[in-house]
């Protein structure tokens, strides 16, 4: 037998470390999911397969309440953020540099640059003032805060899509008697659609996952699912949290899968 052939791309130990990383990334999650199906009350021993923790979560009004609130906020914030981000992306791409363009980039991406905890306390101060002045105590604060930090995430795929779009297509539409509005509706928007969808899904997931900002901005009785879970974990661990986490994970994976294929399958 000849000597093993020299593999140009291989580097010693790299594959081993990579495999360890993938195992390490997924093993804790798999264990977490496994304990969600554990019949025992303690999370340190295995008491047989059971769905009772899912049932208990389902019958927990606080959980259902927080879940509904999470979805309300995520749907509204992602919608507003996607609309604002789409408009902003149209305003900041496919143009020669103009005064204010760099400023706009910096502004839109700002929520990515500042540590969340800082934004969180800033909003806590700001919103508590507004609450004193206006007396408003609804979900508006959370929706506003979520919209703001979702904008840069929604903006990313939309902008990428716009930048890879062929400018001559719109020129061709104008050449064929389409007014700017018609050219946008018939050519730009249909081509941009996958980007907008991807942006919406990203914004939705980001809003749904948020803990820190929500935890500071929320008023009494405005727990979202993540802040409810944070509170419960701090109080002590029951397998019910595992059950909620499992359901949550499933949803995230579903959305990410959709996003992954929506943004990759097309062209």
């Amino acid at each position: 037998m000849a000597k093993r052939r020299f593999d140009l791309k291989a580097l010693p130990g790299f594959t081993t470390i990579a495999v360890i990383c993938f195992v390490a990334l997924y093993l804790p999650i798999i264990i977490l999911v496994a304990y969600a199906f554990n019949a025992a009350t303690s999370t340190s021993e295995w008491g047989g397969f059971s769905l009772k923790w899912f049932a208990s979560a389902w019958n927990n009004d606080q959980v259902i309440d927080a879940t509904i609130r999470s979805f309300q906020i995520a749907v509204l914030a992602a919608t507003f953020a996607t609309i604002a981000a789409t408009m902003a992306a149209l305003a900041t791409t496919r143009t020669k540099a103009y005064r204010g363009l760099t400023f706009k980039y910096a502004f839109i991406n700002q929520p990515l640059m500042v540590p969340e905890i800082v934004t969180a306390v800033a909003l806590l101060i700001f919103f508590s003032r507004i609450k004193v002045w206006t007396g408003y105590a609804g979900l508006g604060y959370l929706i506003g805060a979520h919209t703001a930090f979702c904008i840069p995430f929604a903006y990313l795929p939309i902008r990428a899509r716009l930048e890879s779009m062929d400018l001559t297509l719109e020129r061709a539409a104008a050449d064929l008697y389409a007014t700017p509005f018609k050219a946008f509706r018939r050519v730009t928007l249909p081509l941009l659609w996958p980007g907008i969808l991807a942006g919406f899904m990203l914004a939705f997931v980001i809003s749904l996952d948020d803990v820190v900002i929500t935890n500071f901005v929320k008023l009494g009785g405005q727990d979202t699912l993540p802040t409810y879970m944070l509170g419960q974990i701090r109080r002590g661990i029951t397998p019910e949290i595992n059950a909620i986490s499992t359901a949550f994970l499933l949803l995230s994976i579903l959305i990410v899968t959709l996003f992954f294929f929506a943004s990759r399958k097309r062209d």
Partner: peptide, 8 residues
């Protein structure tokens, strides 16, 4: 993992 909840 990148897009799943950090808390979880």
């Amino acid at each position: 993992p990148f897009w799943t909840n950090l808390l979880i």
